[in-house]
Computed example of a mutant assay.
Amino acid sequence: MQEERRRQHRSRTLKGGRIVTNDGHSTFDCTVRNLSDEGAKLVVTSVFGLPNRFRLAMADGRNFDCETIWHTEAELGVRFL
């Protein structure tokens, strides 16, 4: 079992969002699977081509500047900046 290193508990969620890059000219759909005040876990079709830093625009209108902390082929953990 993997050791929990987060300082804050993340609540499970299932919300739509978009990863926004290139000054808003490029967007990628994502699903927010868990969320805290400090970060989130995102599910995407592929992490290929995603920059390390980007803006997360959630369907509920909230926006976060993010930095990728870890990723697999279709998931990424981000820290809010």
Score class of each variant (00 low, 15 high):
residue 1 M to Y: 08
residue 1 M to T: 12
residue 1 M to H: 14
residue 2 Q to F: 11
residue 2 Q to M: 09
residue 2 Q to D: 09
residue 2 Q to G: 06
residue 3 E to Q: 15
residue 3 E to C: 13
residue 4 E to F: 10
residue 5 R to Y: 05
residue 5 R to V: 11
residue 5 R to N: 13
residue 5 R to K: 08
residue 6 R to F: 02
residue 6 R to D: 01
residue 7 R to W: 07
residue 7 R to K: 12
residue 7 R to G: 10
residue 8 Q to L: 04
residue 10 R to I: 07
residue 10 R to S: 00
residue 11 S to A: 11
residue 11 S to R: 04
residue 12 R to P: 08
residue 12 R to F: 14
residue 13 T to M: 08
residue 13 T to Q: 05
residue 14 L to D: 08
residue 15 K to E: 07
residue 16 G to M: 07
residue 16 G to K: 10
residue 17 G to A: 05
residue 18 R to W: 10
residue 20 V to N: 04
residue 20 V to F: 06
residue 22 N to S: 06
residue 22 N to H: 08
residue 22 N to W: 07
residue 22 N to L: 06
residue 22 N to G: 00
residue 23 D to C: 06
residue 23 D to H: 06
residue 23 D to F: 10
residue 23 D to K: 14
residue 24 G to E: 00
residue 24 G to Y: 08
residue 24 G to Q: 07
residue 25 H to A: 11
residue 25 H to V: 09
residue 25 H to W: 03
residue 25 H to C: 05
residue 26 S to R: 13
residue 27 T to W: 01
residue 27 T to E: 04
residue 28 F to H: 09
residue 29 D to S: 11
residue 29 D to K: 07
residue 30 C to G: 02
residue 30 C to H: 01
residue 30 C to N: 01
residue 31 T to P: 01
residue 32 V to I: 12
residue 32 V to K: 05
residue 33 R to A: 11
residue 35 L to S: 04
residue 36 S to G: 13
residue 36 S to Y: 03
residue 38 E to M: 15
residue 39 G to S: 13
residue 39 G to P: 10
residue 39 G to V: 13
residue 39 G to H: 08
residue 40 A to P: 03
residue 41 K to E: 03
residue 41 K to N: 03
residue 42 L to S: 00
residue 44 V to D: 00
residue 44 V to M: 03
residue 45 T to M: 10
residue 46 S to P: 01
residue 46 S to T: 14
residue 46 S to W: 07
residue 46 S to R: 09
residue 47 V to G: 12
residue 47 V to T: 14
residue 48 F to G: 06
residue 48 F to S: 13
residue 49 G to P: 05
residue 50 L to H: 06
residue 50 L to I: 14
residue 50 L to C: 12
residue 51 P to N: 14
residue 51 P to L: 14
residue 51 P to F: 15
residue 52 N to S: 11
residue 52 N to A: 09
residue 53 R to C: 13
residue 54 F to C: 06
residue 54 F to T: 02
residue 54 F to W: 06
residue 55 R to H: 12
residue 55 R to V: 15
residue 55 R to P: 03
residue 56 L to C: 04
residue 57 A to I: 04
residue 57 A to E: 04
residue 59 A to E: 05
residue 60 D to W: 09
residue 60 D to L: 07
residue 61 G to P: 02
residue 61 G to L: 00
residue 62 R to M: 08
residue 62 R to N: 09
residue 63 N to Y: 07
residue 63 N to M: 04
residue 64 F to Q: 00
residue 66 C to F: 01
residue 66 C to T: 01
residue 66 C to H: 07
residue 67 E to P: 02
residue 69 I to H: 01
residue 69 I to N: 02
residue 69 I to Y: 00
residue 71 H to N: 03
residue 72 T to F: 06
residue 72 T to I: 05
residue 72 T to L: 13
residue 75 E to Y: 15
residue 75 E to S: 15
residue 76 L to C: 09
residue 76 L to N: 03
residue 76 L to H: 05
residue 77 G to C: 10
residue 78 V to D: 00
residue 78 V to C: 05
residue 79 R to A: 15
residue 79 R to F: 12
residue 80 F to A: 07
